[in-house]
Structure formats: C-alpha cells, structure tokens
Design a protein around this nucleic acid. Structure first.
Length: 918
RNA sequence: AGGCCCGUAGCUCAGUUGGUCUAGAGCGCUUCCUUGACACGGAAGAGGUCGAUGGUUCGAAUCCAUUCGGGCCUACCA
C-alpha cells in the first residue's frame, strides 16, 4: 500500500476517527468472566464528573493518568474494567435548572416539586452527556456499556437500602442541632462544604445590667445581632471577678428579657472581658452550653437569614442590617461600651459563596465514629495503600477529628430520604413506601421532604456500580476495585466516605480467590475495602501557579489546547509534568513541544514507510500476539550491526524503566524515558546510522534486514508509547499492518516488557565511545568554523586495540555523521597537536588549514584543566580516606577509582597540550 | 491554632531509599545549516556556589534544626 502520509502530523481528523472506532468496536467493554477464570483483573472507578460539568484541566489530568494506567494494564493482559458515570450533583444541578427557569420568569416553588423534577430530568436528557462526550474525545478507554448515573433506578434502590440499614443499626439519627446553613441555597450543608476565610471585623463589648443592682456585666461578641436570642451570660467558675454574680440575672438590653448568669467553661477568663453571651440557637458552642444548662433556644432568624418575629422590632431585616440597627440602638441607649478591630473567621458556602449561618434545625445525621474507626484501620494496616504517602497522614489526621455527617439537604433534586412522617409523630424508615402508620394505623403518611447529600450516593459507588445489594458475580470479580485515581480536593468529601461505607457494607465479602491471586493481591486479607490502592494527584494550576478559577478568568480550557496541539500532545504534557505530590503549573509551551514530538514520530514513520515501500512492500512485523502473550518485546529483530545491538538494548532498558515508573505512578518518568529514547536515540542516531544500509544501491539482503529491523523496532516503540499517546500510535500501527493488524487495535496488543537476552551492555558502551568521537569532531568543526558542506580528514589515536577496531569498523558512520573525509589512524598520542581533542579512550585531530585561535584554545584548556584538577583532588581525598573505603559501597569506590584514573590521563594530556601552546 | 507542600538555569519543571549529580529536560537565547523523514527539523554553544545559616555523615540539591519567602488544607473559641 502506498504510505503517502502528509508531511506534518494533523491530529484533528485522525483522533476523531480512532475515538469513534474504539467506541464502535466496543473495544473496552468487559464481559464478566465465569467462575474458574484465572485471569488477572484490574478495576478502576471513574470519579464521576458532575452532569453539569464541562471538562476542565483537572478532569483531563485525572483522566489522562487513569487512561495511561488502564491501557497499560489492558495491554499487559489484565481483564481491565474502567467504569464511567456521572454524578447528579444535587445543588449544582438544581441551581443550573433554576437559573434556566429564571430566564423564563419561573420559579421552582411555583411549579411544585413534581413538575420541577421532570424539568431537571429533561435538562439531564438534553445536556447531561456533554461531559461524557468530551471524555470520548479524549479517548478515555472506559466501558461505555456500563455507564451509570447516580440517580439511576438501581442506584437509587441501593441508596435506600443503605439508608435503611444504617438507620436500623442506629448509625443514622435525626435531631435538632446547629448545622451549617446556606441562606441563599436554603439548605443545610456539611462541614466540608464550608470554606473558611479570615476577614477583618470588630469585636463589640456590650454591657448587660445585672438585675437587682446597678452593676453591669460586659460581654464581647463579633455578632451583636444574635444577642436578641441570648438566653444566658456565662462566666468561668474560677474567674473571681464574677464570683459575686453567680446565680444572678441580667436584663437583656433592647429585648428586656431576664436571663441568668451561669458558670460554664465556655467562658475563658483570658478572653475579652471573661464573660460571654450565650445564644444556643445561633452558635455551636453556645448550643452545647445551652444543653448543659437546659437553656431555652431562641431562633431569631428565618431560612434566608432574615430576622423573624423573635427579633421583635427587628423583624424582617437581613442579618447585616439588623446588626447595624442593633448596634445603633445599643450605642444610643448606652450599652455599647467597646469596639475593637478583630480578625474573624467566617464560613462561606462552597457552592454560592454566601456567608454560612449556624442554624438550629432538624436534620439527619450519620454517626460517624464506628465507621471511621474501621476506615482508619484499613489504611493504617495497609489494606488500602494511599500514594503518595503524605496523603495518608493527612487522611488519618482528618479521620481522627471527624464529626458526625449531616446528610440531609433541603433540596428537591437528589435521592429522597426514605422516611415517612405520620401525623401522630411517628417516623417510618422503610425500603418501600409504607401505606399505613404501624403505630396509629392511619394512612396519612407524608415522605420526608429532604434529599440526601450528593456524596452519600457517590460514597457507595465502588459496590453499587457492581450490582449491590444483590450478590453478583461482578462483585466477586471486580471488588475491591484495584485502584482509585483522584484529586486531593475530594479526599475527604468522597474518598474517606467510600472507605467508610465500603468497609461497612461489604464486610465479609470475599473476592474470587483465583482472580485475587492472579491479580497479585494474594497477600491482602481484607476484601471489604473499596480499593486496594488510591493514587492522589495534585492540582493543575495556571502558568503562574494560581489555582484556576472562573472568577479569576485564568482557566485553561483543555479542549482549546487540544484543538491547537492535539489530544496526544496535551496528554503527554500532563503526563510529563505529573510528578507525584506536586501541583502542575500548566504551561502551553510544553504542549507545543510535545506536538513537535508527535510530528517527529510522524516523520520517522514516513521515513520508515518510504523505505518499506521501496525495499519490501509486503513487510509486516511479527507482532501477531494478543495482549498477555509472552513474546511482547521487539519481535523478529536480527541484530546485525553495532547500532542494531545498541538500539535493541536501549529499547529494552527503556521498556524496563517505563514499566517500573508506571508501577509507582511516576508518569513523568515514563513519559520522559520514551521521549528521550524515541527522539534522542532512535531518531537522532539509529535512523541516521542505518540510512546507508537502506539507501538505493545498497546490498538487497542488507537492506531487507535493516528495513525489517526498523519496522520491528518501530512497532514495539509504538506499543510502548501507546498508553500515553493513544491516537498517533494507533494511526501508525494500523498503517504498519496495512489496515489488517493481528488484533483490532494496538490497545489490545501486548505491552513491551524488558527481555534480558536483548540487552547488551557492551554494545551500549561501544556506541557511547563512537558517539563521543563523532560529537568531538562536530565540536571541533564548529570551533574551527569549517564550512558545513566541506568534508575534512581527521586523525585518530586509539588507546586500545579494541577502540581502534571499533572506529575502523564504523568508519563509514563517522564519515557520514561528522562529515569526515577519511579517518587516519595514528600510532602515537596526538595530545600535543594544536587543536586536538582527547578523551580517556582516544585522541582526535581535525586536519584543516585554518589556524586555530591559540588564545581561545588556551583559555578553554586551562578552564578545563582547572576543573579536572578540582575533581581529581576531590576524588583522591575521598580515596585516601579510610572511612570512605570502609563504609562506602564497593560499587561507588570502584566507580570513583576508575573515574579518577581517567581524569589523571586527561590531566596529563591537557596540561602537556597547554604547555605546548605557551 | 494545628498540619502539609514548595523555593534548583531567563521561564516552567525533573532529580525514588544521601554515593559516576562532573546537577538534567523543555521553552527561550547565541552561532551555523532548507543535506531526499521531519525548520513542529539538524549541529554546536552560553547559562545554576540547588532560598539562607548551622548541623549529622567518609560523602548532602537529597537527612535534621533554625530562618526568610510563596502556596495549600484542616479547625466550634466569643
């Protein structure tokens, strides 16, 4: 077939074509294997993006890393399940649809719950696949046949089951507590959804008159408007300033309510005046104190943080207006006695940014301690490995201070809480909708209005996506999930919750023993954990290391980057920059560089095809294997020459490095190894070296071998690169097989593994010396400003016969790559010849009439000599140190000894030459 | 308040348990080259006392302490 590829690589159409092909062919769909199968299994759960989401760099980093690991496993013969889905994203989606409604002049309250829900589903049907369509474009090799949505009927059933079980076990309770309340969203939110911020504020001192005396007691507060709900003033029992007031009452200003002075540890003598107002309905600490002293709870605000009837004259005012008015009135009436600048910590709603109000309300909670205990243990004892390890510390730290989790939300969009209220006050928690109240037998039941926190359902995904609560074969095979790859920003929101809920609900579960063994997890004891390993990656920032955010306007749109440079180049950028544990400052110039890399690969392929078409048009490399087969390195390679032995050896070493790097999620090392190999060794040296063998007029047999080797090596290199750059590798690989590949896709071909038999350390060393000679000649030519086209003779003195032989055998290579006219071999050192170069293994001299710049040469040499001497001195000092000889490993001592010897040879030559020049 | 991370070439970053690190890469920069795969290319080069100080060690960019600078996370103290 004619391989007339365009001169430069155009990713757009090619990528779209293969992305479609992979989906159409269902290449990544996984059939559940029957019992008895011993194949290794790899399971990965996609962190479900919000249905409302648009692909951002964080997603892309996450998905690139996952896809690399997934493709790598698949090519190594694992039965690889990557399970995709989207999250219904309670608040985000509801807000999105409400905004849409607002444009039509409608409000959800007017529509009613049912109509609104229909509308959200409508929205989902229309726009809900935007983000997954974008994933398809990335080439994410997920099993689309198993795609889920967290509001799917089967997942909803599982959610109800979980809720009921936890309730029955006493791990879910309902109660009236202070929760974080967002006045804009109109719902409770969990501790995690509150973002803390420090802002300058004021600390106000207000004096309360003590009843039955003309004394005052002065309290300090940052939130004077809440005084309207005060039900006590607390002082510390040990605080002698207030001992005489114990048991007395004060008259609450503005409201004229009598409230007691109590003693409680809430009041700390060192702070402010040592006396503190107690507002049980508006502060979590005060709430606790209120319970201790049985104080009334007076809520003075409504759900939008406006003052209610309990606020008397202030009713209807927003909390900040109320603060202003309260302060004015207090000042006017002489109660405000102090006002200090003070930094206050405020909490803002993660979603909408409104200041969160601690609010007394009835909510559903999960008693977290028993779940946390188990989830802590499995990380401590290594049943779940968290990588990098510092996230393990962060996780354990958080688990040790974890609070009960408020799971109810006052929203409409989400999993409805499976609880029904009877007019008699009874609450029925049930899997199915109950018809009558078991207590009073009335049929007037209404379902709880609240829905569950979105993270409640996503916390169950590791097992609910595998058919739970049914006992399924999928669970035996795929649970525990092998790995989770996610960002640290949802470590607590999601990861920790999955640990807790997974261990709890899959307690006692056993993975299919044969599969567990084959997958390499034989040593793990606990199969209830949701994952064997969790890899946490960092954030993608902009080039200035700023967090990307819409408000800052510094968001880099991955699709735009892809548009310009290609998906492969963008993926490669993220992989090459993803050193574990560090944030990625996304830099477009890198992507530009990797587009050039793709182009380089493309042109190397053009070169290959050009030769195949001319030399042996029917040539196909021998990779007829499916993934998992043993012959997975370079196939049918006849190492005939030094460069053949060398490149084969290098390939295997690189394959070894890449596999090792991926094993520990060092994506950047994997990417860079391949890059350096492909460009710096394969293209820059190997292709140049074999050109004479391929050239027209060369011996046909030699040409055939060279051509076949080239194709074999290229084919293997494509497989090595495929997980990182899936598109270009597929395109060229298919072309290598002329559109009739042994398997449907390179994604199903075996991944290269290092083969010791193909490694040749001697060839690598010999090649290094040859390269050294060539580079030296080029170097001298540049210094002498020899015309680029002019070929020059050189003179070489080799210290050892083998080196001379090496140069003789590869004379042609030297002549071509260094533009040398002929190589003359000298019998004695050339060190003293002006302009000569020398290394520990050879001396070299370019024969050229142009005079060398003696002064410049002298400068260069004395600089060099200085450096050599410094290093020799350093080496000798160490080698003369007995402690070093005794303690350092033999390899290090040996290396230093050799190095020092070489340096001494160099020093001799350099100094004698320098003497010559003076 | 507690915890975590970062500070290496002009810029963006690598540098796994301290030992061929004689500190690397990409981009940028300088000089030269359109040679039949590729100018998204090739060849050669300049550029860093690894934030600072002190310590541990035969040996430190790498470990410890202090300090300066930058970022992040968690936290119910008025």
């Amino acid at each position: 077939m004619p391989h007339d590829l365009p001169k430069s690589y155009e990713p757009g159409a090619i990528e779209a074509r293969w992305a479609d092909y992979w989906i159409r062919e269902k290449l990544f769909s996984v059939k559940t294997p029957p019992p008895g199968e011993k194949r290794p299994v790899f399971t990965l759960l996609l962190p479900p993006p919000n249905v409302t989401g648009r692909l951002h760099m964080g997603h892309m980093l996450n998905q690139t890393q996952m896809d690399i690991i997934v493709r790598w496993h698949r090519m190594r013969g694992f039965l690889t399940l990557w399970l995709p889905g989207t999250d219904h994203a309670g608040i985000a989606t509801q807000m999105m649809v409400e905004r849409q409604l607002a444009k039509e002049g409608k409000r959800r309250e007017d529509m009613g719950r049912e109509k609104f829900m229909e509308r959200v589903w409508e929205w989902k049907r229309q726009y809900g696949s935007a983000i997954t369509d974008q994933m398809r474009r990335l080439g994410a090799s997920v099993d689309w046949d198993r795609e889920y949505f967290t509001m799917d009927e089967n997942l909803n059933r599982a959610v109800r089951e979980v809720f009921v079980r936890l309730y029955e076990e006493g791990l879910i309770y309902r109660g009236k507590y202070i929760v974080n309340w967002c006045p804009r969203c109109g719902t409770a939110i969990s501790d995690l959804e509150v973002k803390h911020e420090e802002v300058p504020g004021k600390l106000y001192e207000i004096r309360y008159p003590v009843v039955g005396s003309n004394e005052f007691i002065t309290v300090a507060t940052t939130r004077p408007e809440t005084m309207l709900g005060d039900t006590a003033v607390a002082v510390n029992e040990k605080d002698e300033r207030y001992t005489h007031l114990h048991g007395k009452n004060v008259l609450l200003p503005l409201v004229n309510r009598e409230i007691p002075i109590i003693t409680d540890e809430l009041a700390q003598p060192e702070f402010g005046t040592g006396a503190v107002k107690v507002t049980p309905a508006h502060d979590p600490n005060d709430f606790q104190a209120g319970l201790r002293h049985n104080l009334p709870q007076i809520d003075v605000m409504d759900e939008h943080a406006h003052m209610n009837q309990n606020a008397g004259a202030y009713v209807g005012l927003d909390r900040y207006q109320a603060r202003k008015r309260v302060l004015e009135d207090l000042r006017e009436q002489g109660f405000l006695v102090g006002e200090k600048d003070y930094t206050i910590a405020i909490g803002k709603c993660d979603r909408c940014g409104s200041v969160v109000e601690p609010r007394l309300s009835t909510q559903w909670f999960i008693k977290i301690a028993p779940l946390a205990e188990r989830a802590t243990k499995v990380v401590e004892n290594g049943e779940i490995t968290i990588v990098p390890e510092n996230y393990k510390t962060i996780y354990l730290n958080w688990m040790n201070n974890i609070h009960d989790w408020c799971i109810s939300r006052q929203l409409w969009w989400g999993h409805r809480i499976p609880a029904w209220h009877c007019s008699c006050g009874e609450i029925i928690v049930s899997r199915e909708t109950p018809t009558t109240c078991p207590k009073c037998a009335k049929a007037t039941l209404t379902q709880d209005r609240d829905v569950l926190d979105t993270w409640f359902s996503s916390g169950l995904l590791p097992f609910t996506t595998l058919g739970w609560p049914e006992k399924t074969r999928d669970q035996e095979v795929f649970y525990p999930n092998t790995l989770l790859i996610t960002g640290f920003d949802i470590l607590f929101f999601w990861v920790a919750r999955m640990f807790m809920l997974g261990c709890h609900f899959m307690d006692g579960h056993k993975q299919d023993a044969a599969i567990k063994q084959a997958s390499g997890w034989g040593e793990k004891k606990d199969d209830s954990v949701p994952f064997r390993q969790v890899y946490i990656h960092a954030l993608v920032r902009d080039a200035e290391r700023q967090k990307m955010s819409k408000t800052k306007g510094n968001v880099v749109d991955p699709l735009e980057v892809i548009e310009r440079f290609g998906t492969d180049a963008t993926r490669f950028t993220l992989a090459a920059m993803a050193a574990p544990g560090t944030d990625i400052a996304f830099n477009e110039s890198r992507t530009e560089g990797y587009r050039a890399f793709a182009n380089k690969i493309w042109n190397a392929a053009r070169f290959m095809f050009m030769n195949v078409d001319r030399i042996e048009p029917g040539l196909r490399p021998g990779c007829a294997a499916e993934s998992g087969r043993p012959h997975v390195g370079v196939v049918d390679f006849q190492a005939a020459t030094l460069e053949d032995c060398w490149i084969l050896s290098r390939f295997n070493r690189v394959a070894k490095d890449v596999n090792a790097a991926l094993e520990t999620y060092r994506f950047h090392e994997a990417a860079n190894s391949i890059y350096d190999f492909f460009w710096g060794e394969f293209c820059d040296w190997y292709l140049e070296l074999i050109k004479p063998r391929l050239a027209e007029g060369a011996d046909p047999n030699t040409a055939r071998v060279a051509c076949s080797n080239l194709v074999s090596l290229f084919e293997a290199a494509l497989r090595l690169l495929h997980p990182v750059m899936p598109f270009i590798t597929e395109e060229i690989w298919q072309a290598v097989y002329d559109g009739k590949p042994p398997v449907r896709s390179i994604a199903l071909a075996p991944y290269p593994q290092a083969d010791k038999k193909q490694m040749d350390a001697a060839a690598e060393t010999r090649m290094a010396v040859l390269q050294d000679l060539i580079v030296n000649v080029r170097n001298v030519r540049a210094e002498l400003k020899v015309e680029p086209k002019q070929r020059v003779p050189i003179q070489v003195f080799a210290h050892e016969p083998e080196i001379r032989k090496l140069f003789e055998e590869n004379q042609g290579a030297v002549e071509r790559l260094a533009n040398v006219e002929r190589v003359e071999f000298a019998d004695a050192s050339l060190a003293k010849v002006a302009g000569a170069r020398h290394t520990a293994r050879f001396d070299m001299h370019v024969i050229y009439e142009k005079k060398i710049d003696i002064a410049a040469e002298r400068d260069r040499l004395s600089k060099e000599l200085e450096k050599i001497e410094r290093e020799i001195a350093n080496g000798q000092r160490q080698l003369g140190n007995e402690q070093f000889l005794a303690k350092a490993p033999a390899k290090v001592v040996e290396g230093l000894r050799n190095r020092t010897q070489e340096l001494q040879v160099l020093r001799e030559k350099t100094s004698s030459k320098l003497g010559e020049l003076k």
